[in-house]
Design a protein around this nucleic acid. Sequence first.
DNA 1: ATTGGTTATGTCAGACTAAACATATCGGAA
DNA 2: TTCCGATATGTTTAGTCTGACATAACCAAT
Lengths: 118, 118
Amino acid sequence: MKNDPRLSLRLHFEQGLTFGRGKADLLQGIAEEGSISGAGRRLKMSYRRAWALVEEMNGNFRAPLVDSSRGGAKGGGATLTELGQAVLADYRALEAMLRKAPELDSLRASLCDMSDKK
Amino acid sequence: MKNDPRLSLRLHFEQGLTFGRGKADLLQGIAEEGSISGAGRRLKMSYRRAWALVEEMNGNFRAPLVDSSRGGAKGGGATLTELGQAVLADYRALEAMLRKAPELDSLRASLCDMSDKK
DNA sequence: ATTGGTTATGTCAGACTAAACATATCGGAA
DNA sequence: TTCCGATATGTTTAGTCTGACATAACCAAT
Protein backbone atom coordinates (compact mmCIF):
# COMPACT_ATOMS: atom_id res chain seq x y z
CA MET A 1 0.00 0.00 0.00
CA LYS A 2 3.00 2.22 0.48
CA ASN A 3 3.90 2.05 -3.17
CA ASP A 4 0.80 1.21 -5.10
CA PRO A 5 1.99 -0.18 -8.43
CA ARG A 6 -1.49 0.00 -9.78
CA LEU A 7 -1.65 3.73 -9.88
CA SER A 8 0.50 6.38 -11.38
CA LEU A 9 -0.19 10.08 -11.40
CA ARG A 10 1.37 12.22 -14.06
CA LEU A 11 1.13 15.97 -14.13
CA HIS A 12 1.61 17.84 -17.36
CA PHE A 13 2.42 21.50 -16.95
CA GLU A 14 2.13 24.22 -19.52
CA GLN A 15 5.87 24.79 -19.57
CA GLY A 16 6.04 21.40 -21.23
CA LEU A 17 7.40 19.58 -18.24
CA THR A 18 5.78 16.34 -17.25
CA PHE A 19 6.23 15.09 -13.73
CA GLY A 20 5.06 11.66 -12.74
CA ARG A 21 6.04 8.67 -10.70
CA GLY A 22 9.23 8.05 -12.62
CA LYS A 23 10.75 11.38 -11.68
CA ALA A 24 9.34 11.27 -8.16
CA ASP A 25 10.80 7.82 -7.55
CA LEU A 26 14.07 8.99 -9.02
CA LEU A 27 14.21 11.94 -6.64
CA GLN A 28 13.44 9.67 -3.73
CA GLY A 29 16.07 7.20 -4.89
CA ILE A 30 18.68 9.94 -5.07
CA ALA A 31 17.77 11.14 -1.60
CA GLU A 32 18.09 7.65 -0.16
CA GLU A 33 21.02 6.35 -2.19
CA GLY A 34 23.04 9.52 -2.28
CA SER A 35 23.79 9.30 -5.97
CA ILE A 36 22.16 9.40 -9.37
CA SER A 37 23.74 6.13 -10.41
CA GLY A 38 22.65 4.45 -7.19
CA ALA A 39 19.10 5.55 -7.75
CA GLY A 40 19.33 4.38 -11.35
CA ARG A 41 20.42 0.92 -10.25
CA ARG A 42 17.66 0.68 -7.72
CA LEU A 43 15.05 1.70 -10.26
CA LYS A 44 16.63 -0.53 -12.92
CA MET A 45 17.11 2.47 -15.16
CA SER A 46 20.30 3.27 -17.03
CA TYR A 47 22.45 6.02 -15.58
CA ARG A 48 22.14 7.76 -18.92
CA ARG A 49 18.42 8.02 -18.53
CA ALA A 50 18.48 8.89 -14.85
CA TRP A 51 20.89 11.70 -15.52
CA ALA A 52 18.80 13.00 -18.41
CA LEU A 53 15.74 13.14 -16.18
CA VAL A 54 17.67 15.00 -13.52
CA GLU A 55 18.88 17.52 -16.06
CA GLU A 56 15.36 17.99 -17.36
CA MET A 57 14.07 18.63 -13.87
CA ASN A 58 16.89 20.94 -12.91
CA GLY A 59 16.29 22.97 -16.05
CA ASN A 60 12.55 23.27 -15.73
CA PHE A 61 12.27 24.32 -12.13
CA ARG A 62 13.14 27.71 -10.70
CA ALA A 63 16.22 26.19 -9.17
CA PRO A 64 17.88 22.75 -9.32
CA LEU A 65 16.17 19.93 -7.48
CA VAL A 66 19.32 17.85 -7.39
CA ASP A 67 22.75 18.97 -6.31
CA SER A 68 25.57 16.83 -7.65
CA SER A 69 29.31 16.69 -7.25
CA ARG A 70 31.90 14.48 -8.82
CA GLY A 71 35.22 13.08 -7.83
CA GLY A 72 36.35 12.27 -4.35
CA ALA A 73 36.68 9.07 -2.40
CA LYS A 74 33.25 7.81 -3.25
CA GLY A 75 33.46 9.15 -6.77
CA GLY A 76 30.95 11.85 -6.14
CA GLY A 77 27.28 11.86 -5.40
CA ALA A 78 24.04 13.73 -5.50
CA THR A 79 21.55 15.00 -2.99
CA LEU A 80 18.21 16.72 -3.09
CA THR A 81 18.11 20.45 -2.61
CA GLU A 82 15.47 21.92 -0.34
CA LEU A 83 13.39 22.64 -3.41
CA GLY A 84 13.85 19.05 -4.51
CA GLN A 85 12.61 17.76 -1.19
CA ALA A 86 9.65 20.10 -1.31
CA VAL A 87 8.69 19.06 -4.84
CA LEU A 88 8.90 15.40 -3.92
CA ALA A 89 6.80 15.95 -0.82
CA ASP A 90 4.18 17.87 -2.79
CA TYR A 91 3.93 15.13 -5.36
CA ARG A 92 3.60 12.44 -2.71
CA ALA A 93 0.88 14.44 -1.04
CA LEU A 94 -1.07 14.73 -4.28
CA GLU A 95 -0.58 11.02 -4.86
CA ALA A 96 -1.93 10.20 -1.41
CA MET A 97 -4.90 12.51 -1.86
CA LEU A 98 -5.70 10.82 -5.14
CA ARG A 99 -5.48 7.35 -3.66
CA LYS A 100 -8.08 8.25 -1.09
CA ALA A 101 -10.53 9.67 -3.61
CA PRO A 102 -13.69 7.58 -3.98
CA GLU A 103 -13.87 8.44 -7.67
CA LEU A 104 -10.67 6.49 -8.19
CA ASP A 105 -12.23 3.34 -6.79
CA SER A 106 -15.19 3.97 -9.02
CA LEU A 107 -12.91 4.21 -12.04
CA ARG A 108 -11.06 1.06 -11.06
CA ALA A 109 -14.32 -0.82 -10.72
CA SER A 110 -15.16 0.18 -14.28
CA LEU A 111 -12.04 -1.40 -15.72
CA CYS A 112 -11.61 -4.95 -16.96
CA ASP A 113 -10.48 -7.44 -14.33
CA MET A 114 -6.87 -8.52 -14.41
CA SER A 115 -7.85 -11.87 -15.86
CA ASP A 116 -8.31 -10.29 -19.29
CA LYS A 117 -5.42 -10.68 -21.65
CA LYS A 118 -4.19 -7.89 -23.92
CA MET B 1 -10.70 28.19 -15.35
CA LYS B 2 -13.20 25.73 -16.70
CA ASN B 3 -10.61 24.11 -18.89
CA ASP B 4 -7.24 24.77 -17.40
CA PRO B 5 -4.74 24.22 -20.22
CA ARG B 6 -1.91 24.39 -17.77
CA LEU B 7 -2.73 21.19 -16.05
CA SER B 8 -3.26 17.67 -17.21
CA LEU B 9 -3.86 14.64 -15.06
CA ARG B 10 -3.00 11.26 -16.40
CA LEU B 11 -3.83 8.04 -14.63
CA HIS B 12 -1.89 4.90 -15.40
CA PHE B 13 -3.63 1.71 -14.39
CA GLU B 14 -2.09 -1.68 -13.90
CA GLN B 15 -4.05 -3.18 -16.78
CA GLY B 16 -1.89 -0.99 -18.97
CA LEU B 17 -4.54 1.52 -19.80
CA THR B 18 -3.68 5.15 -19.46
CA PHE B 19 -6.46 7.64 -19.09
CA GLY B 20 -5.76 11.34 -19.23
CA ARG B 21 -7.13 14.55 -20.57
CA GLY B 22 -6.94 13.46 -24.17
CA LYS B 23 -9.39 10.63 -23.69
CA ALA B 24 -11.54 12.61 -21.30
CA ASP B 25 -11.84 15.51 -23.74
CA LEU B 26 -12.59 13.05 -26.49
CA LEU B 27 -15.41 11.50 -24.50
CA GLN B 28 -16.80 14.91 -23.75
CA GLY B 29 -16.48 15.91 -27.40
CA ILE B 30 -18.38 12.82 -28.49
CA ALA B 31 -21.10 13.53 -25.95
CA GLU B 32 -21.48 17.11 -27.15
CA GLU B 33 -20.92 16.62 -30.89
CA GLY B 34 -22.73 13.35 -31.25
CA SER B 35 -20.01 11.73 -33.32
CA ILE B 36 -16.43 10.56 -33.17
CA SER B 37 -15.48 12.55 -36.24
CA GLY B 38 -17.10 15.69 -34.87
CA ALA B 39 -15.17 15.33 -31.66
CA GLY B 40 -12.02 14.72 -33.67
CA ARG B 41 -12.52 17.91 -35.63
CA ARG B 42 -13.14 19.91 -32.51
CA LEU B 43 -10.04 18.53 -30.85
CA LYS B 44 -8.03 18.92 -34.07
CA MET B 45 -7.27 15.23 -34.01
CA SER B 46 -7.55 12.92 -36.99
CA TYR B 47 -10.55 10.65 -37.12
CA ARG B 48 -8.15 7.75 -37.33
CA ARG B 49 -6.66 8.62 -34.00
CA ALA B 50 -9.95 9.49 -32.32
CA TRP B 51 -11.41 6.19 -33.38
CA ALA B 52 -8.34 4.28 -32.15
CA LEU B 53 -8.67 5.90 -28.74
CA VAL B 54 -12.34 4.99 -28.58
CA GLU B 55 -11.56 1.40 -29.44
CA GLU B 56 -8.86 1.29 -26.81
CA MET B 57 -11.24 2.59 -24.18
CA ASN B 58 -14.08 0.31 -25.20
CA GLY B 59 -11.75 -2.66 -24.99
CA ASN B 60 -10.21 -1.85 -21.65
CA PHE B 61 -13.31 -1.12 -19.65
CA ARG B 62 -15.85 -3.62 -18.40
CA ALA B 63 -18.23 -2.40 -21.05
CA PRO B 64 -18.00 0.08 -23.94
CA LEU B 65 -17.88 3.76 -23.05
CA VAL B 66 -18.96 4.81 -26.52
CA ASP B 67 -21.86 3.48 -28.50
CA SER B 68 -21.59 4.07 -32.24
CA SER B 69 -23.75 3.46 -35.26
CA ARG B 70 -23.19 4.06 -38.92
CA GLY B 71 -25.30 4.89 -41.92
CA GLY B 72 -28.48 6.86 -41.91
CA ALA B 73 -29.33 10.41 -42.78
CA LYS B 74 -26.55 11.95 -40.76
CA GLY B 75 -24.16 9.19 -41.71
CA GLY B 76 -24.15 7.74 -38.26
CA GLY B 77 -22.91 8.93 -34.93
CA ALA B 78 -21.74 8.05 -31.49
CA THR B 79 -22.91 8.66 -27.95
CA LEU B 80 -21.63 7.93 -24.49
CA THR B 81 -22.99 4.94 -22.66
CA GLU B 82 -23.93 5.32 -19.01
CA LEU B 83 -20.56 3.86 -18.10
CA GLY B 84 -18.92 6.38 -20.41
CA GLN B 85 -20.67 9.25 -18.71
CA ALA B 86 -19.74 7.88 -15.31
CA VAL B 87 -16.07 7.48 -16.22
CA LEU B 88 -15.94 11.00 -17.61
CA ALA B 89 -17.60 12.39 -14.50
CA ASP B 90 -15.19 10.54 -12.24
CA TYR B 91 -12.20 11.85 -14.13
CA ARG B 92 -13.50 15.41 -14.04
CA ALA B 93 -14.07 15.08 -10.32
CA LEU B 94 -10.51 13.93 -9.76
CA GLU B 95 -9.28 16.77 -11.94
CA ALA B 96 -11.26 19.29 -9.91
CA MET B 97 -10.01 17.87 -6.65
CA LEU B 98 -6.46 18.10 -7.89
CA ARG B 99 -6.89 21.68 -9.01
CA LYS B 100 -7.99 22.71 -5.56
CA ALA B 101 -5.05 21.04 -3.85
CA PRO B 102 -2.64 23.52 -2.27
CA GLU B 103 0.30 21.26 -3.11
CA LEU B 104 -0.39 21.87 -6.77
CA ASP B 105 0.03 25.61 -6.34
CA SER B 106 3.19 24.92 -4.45
CA LEU B 107 4.49 22.82 -7.34
CA ARG B 108 3.53 25.47 -9.86
CA ALA B 109 5.35 28.11 -7.89
CA SER B 110 8.47 25.97 -8.07
CA LEU B 111 8.48 25.88 -11.84
CA CYS B 112 10.18 28.30 -14.20
CA ASP B 113 8.06 31.24 -15.26
CA MET B 114 6.58 31.19 -18.73
CA SER B 115 9.13 33.71 -19.93
CA ASP B 116 11.75 30.98 -20.16
CA LYS B 117 12.33 29.59 -23.60
CA LYS B 118 12.80 25.88 -24.35
C1' DA C 1 50.59 8.75 -8.93
C1' DT C 2 47.20 5.32 -8.95
C1' DT C 3 42.55 3.92 -8.06
C1' DG C 4 37.66 3.61 -8.06
C1' DG C 5 33.04 5.03 -8.30
C1' DT C 6 30.51 8.82 -9.97
C1' DT C 7 29.19 12.66 -12.86
C1' DA C 8 28.77 14.17 -17.54
C1' DT C 9 28.24 13.54 -22.74
C1' DG C 10 28.27 11.56 -27.43
C1' DT C 11 26.56 8.32 -30.73
C1' DC C 12 23.64 5.13 -33.09
C1' DA C 13 20.43 1.42 -34.19
C1' DG C 14 15.96 -0.16 -33.07
C1' DA C 15 11.38 0.39 -31.05
C1' DC C 16 7.65 2.80 -30.61
C1' DT C 17 4.37 6.77 -31.94
C1' DA C 18 2.13 9.87 -34.62
C1' DA C 19 0.48 11.68 -38.81
C1' DA C 20 -1.07 11.39 -43.53
C1' DC C 21 -3.41 9.15 -47.10
C1' DA C 22 -6.56 5.68 -48.93
C1' DT C 23 -10.73 2.68 -49.02
C1' DA C 24 -14.67 0.10 -47.98
C1' DT C 25 -19.13 -0.07 -45.70
C1' DC C 26 -23.37 1.57 -43.90
C1' DG C 27 -28.33 3.26 -44.23
C1' DG C 28 -31.91 7.08 -43.82
C1' DA C 29 -33.36 10.77 -46.78
C1' DA C 30 -34.18 13.02 -51.07
C1' DT D 1 -31.47 4.61 -56.64
C1' DT D 2 -28.32 7.87 -55.50
C1' DC D 3 -26.06 10.57 -52.06
C1' DC D 4 -23.79 12.10 -47.93
C1' DG D 5 -21.52 12.08 -43.69
C1' DA D 6 -20.01 8.90 -40.48
C1' DT D 7 -18.01 4.45 -38.97
C1' DA D 8 -14.36 1.14 -39.61
C1' DT D 9 -9.66 -0.33 -41.20
C1' DG D 10 -5.32 -0.78 -43.86
C1' DT D 11 -0.91 1.04 -45.28
C1' DT D 12 3.05 3.80 -45.20
C1' DT D 13 6.06 7.37 -43.98
C1' DA D 14 8.08 10.49 -40.66
C1' DG D 15 9.18 11.65 -36.37
C1' DT D 16 10.18 10.70 -31.61
C1' DC D 17 11.73 8.11 -27.81
C1' DT D 18 14.47 4.43 -25.80
C1' DG D 19 18.38 1.46 -24.70
C1' DA D 20 22.89 -0.02 -25.24
C1' DC D 21 27.54 1.05 -25.73
C1' DA D 22 31.51 4.14 -25.24
C1' DT D 23 34.37 7.67 -23.31
C1' DA D 24 36.12 11.62 -20.82
C1' DA D 25 36.64 14.27 -16.56
C1' DC D 26 36.72 14.56 -11.66
C1' DC D 27 39.03 14.16 -7.06
C1' DA D 28 39.54 12.38 -1.96
C1' DA D 29 41.81 8.60 -0.20
C1' DT D 30 45.50 5.36 -0.37
